[in-house]
């Protein structure tokens, strides 16, 4: 009988993931080498490596949670591959769900038919393939445009970058508030739309506030005490504080 957790699948997935790791190490070594050539402070490189690694832990564990969730119906190797290479939990859940419902399978049951498994793997792969196809083709064009702009107008080039970052950040800030109108909805509407309580819409708002305040305090503290290392870990620290605060906020508002 077909087993989506068979060792053959682990081996194939392992080879692909090893290649992806190889790419990251390749670019890491080359960037560090180039950094030395153009005299970027060694200390800055070291701090970048350490703080990036620490910051990554919590989001990476949340990706792991996604794999565990999907493994109930798909086994471990396929979700492991899909979430290590491009995928995101929201996409993979939608893609796997679309394939499973087309096959007439239920989400909570382990797939035991090889043809169904292959079908799901194809749908998940084809749906996400666009980024992988276009990146090698378009990155150079887009980046060369930016390099030219940088040479022509340094000030606008820097401002353009800040504008892009702020544009992305503002979209996520808006999303945090997307359900606040729930406060004024009727009980029937809340139940019909699957909300557990009227005030649960305030949980992300409160969490965001905690993270922002933590970040601001870290900034002030490091300036006042003249301790640089606080800012090095401020983002992961505020991330963890915000996520931890979600636990009492959910008990209170959820």
């Amino acid at each position: 009988m077909f087993n989506p957790n068979s060792y053959v699948l682990y081996i194939i997935v392992g080879v692909i993931i090893a290649t992806v790791l190889g790419q990251s190490f390749f670019f890491l070594f080359r960037a560090v080498k180039r950094a030395k050539q153009i005299n970027i402070d060694k200390d800055k490189i070291k701090k970048t490596i350490i703080s990036s690694a620490i910051f990554t832990i919590a989001p990476a564990v949340s990706i792991l949670v996604g794999i565990i969730t999907l493994s109930v119906s798909l086994g471990v190797p396929l979700p492991w591959l899909r979430l290590s290479v491009i995928g995101s939990l929201s996409y993979e859940t939608v893609a796997a769900g679309a394939a499973q419902s087309a096959l007439g399978l239920s989400m909570g049951k382990l797939v035991d038919d090889p043809s169904a498994f292959v079908t799901i793997a194809w749908v998940m792969t084809l749906g996400i393939i666009m980024g992988l196809v276009l990146t090698p083709i378009l990155t150079k064009k887009v980046q060369s445009g930016l390099v030219k702009l940088e040479a022509k107008d340094k000030k606008w080039s820097a401002l353009l970058n800040d504008a892009m970052f702020l544009g992305m950040i503002s979209a996520f800030l808006g999303y945090v508030f997307c359900d606040v109108t729930n406060l004024f909805r009727s009980d029937e509407w809340l139940i019909a739309n699957g909300f557990t309580s009227r005030t649960s819409c305030l949980i992300p708002v409160c969490v965001m506030a905690v993270a922002s305040i933590t970040m601001a305090l870290c900034g002030l503290l490091s300036k006042k005490l003249k301790v640089r290392w606080i800012t090095d870990y401020a983002l992961p620290f505020s991330l963890i504080c915000g996520m931890a605060s979600a636990i009492p906020f959910t008990m209170w508002l959820g």
């Binding site: 919590a58 989001p59 564990v61 949340s62 949670v65 800040d162 970052f165 702020l166 950040i169 996520f172 800030l173 999303y175 945090v176 949980i203 992300p204 708002v205 969490v207 965001m208 506030a209 905690v210 993270a211 922002s212 933590t214 970040m215 601001a216 900034g219 401020a234 983002l235 505020s238 991330l239 963890i240 504080c241 915000g242 996520m243 931890a244 605060s245 979600a246 636990i247 959910t250 959820g254």
Partner: peptide
Amino acid sequence: VAFAQLLPALFGGLAIVFI
């Protein structure tokens, strides 16, 4: 519950710096 609020926590911290 904590992982469900990853994005608000992440962007809350990041937003302050860039704003």
